[in-house]
Measured scan of single mutants.
Amino acid sequence: NITYDSTPEDVKTWLQSKGFNPVTVNSLGVLNGAQLFSLNKDELRTVCPEGARVYSQIT
Rank of each mutant, 00 (worst) to 15 (best):
N1I: 11
N1D: 15
N1Y: 09
I2K: 01
I2S: 01
I2F: 03
I2M: 08
T3A: 06
T3Q: 07
T3R: 09
T3G: 10
T3L: 04
Y4M: 10
Y4P: 13
D5V: 10
D5W: 06
S6C: 02
T7Q: 10
T7D: 11
P8I: 13
P8N: 09
P8W: 02
P8G: 04
E9I: 05
E9H: 15
E9L: 12
E9R: 10
E9F: 07
E9C: 08
E9Y: 10
D10G: 08
D10C: 09
D10M: 10
V11H: 00
V11I: 13
V11S: 02
T13F: 05
T13V: 10
T13E: 08
W14C: 02
W14Y: 08
W14T: 04
L15W: 00
L15T: 02
L15F: 01
L15P: 03
L15C: 03
Q16R: 11
Q16S: 11
Q16V: 13
S17I: 05
K18R: 14
K18S: 13
K18L: 08
G19S: 07
G19E: 07
G19W: 02
F20R: 01
F20I: 02
N21M: 11
N21Q: 15
N21L: 10
N21T: 06
P22R: 13
P22D: 14
P22C: 11
V23M: 13
V23Y: 07
V23F: 11
V23Q: 09
V23W: 08
V23D: 14
T24D: 02
T24I: 05
T24L: 03
V25M: 08
V25Q: 13
V25E: 04
V25R: 05
V25F: 04
V25H: 00
N26Q: 11
N26Y: 07
N26A: 14
N26D: 12
S27H: 06
S27T: 13
S27G: 09
L28P: 01
L28W: 00
L28K: 00
L28G: 02
L28V: 11
G29F: 00
V30R: 13
V30W: 11
L31Q: 03
L31H: 05
N32Q: 05
N32P: 05
G33D: 04
G33V: 01
G33K: 02
G33E: 01
G33F: 01
G33A: 07
A34N: 09
A34P: 09
Q35G: 07
Q35S: 13
Q35P: 00
L36C: 01
L36V: 06
L36H: 03
F37M: 15
F37T: 08
F37I: 09
S38T: 14
S38Q: 13
L39V: 05
L39I: 05
L39E: 04
D42F: 06
D42S: 12
D42N: 10
E43P: 01
E43A: 13
L44W: 07
L44Q: 01
L44S: 03
R45V: 15
R45T: 14
R45M: 04
T46P: 03
C48R: 03
P49W: 05
E50Q: 11
E50R: 01
E50M: 02
G51I: 01
G51M: 05
G51A: 07
A52H: 14
A52I: 05
A52G: 12
V54H: 01
V54R: 02
V54T: 03
V54N: 02
V54F: 01
Y55C: 07
Y55F: 10
Y55S: 08
Y55M: 08
Y55N: 15
Y55A: 09
S56I: 07
S56F: 08
S56Q: 15
S56L: 06
Q57L: 13
Q57M: 15
Q57D: 15
Q57C: 12
Q57K: 11
Q57V: 13
I58D: 02
I58R: 06
I58C: 10
I58S: 05
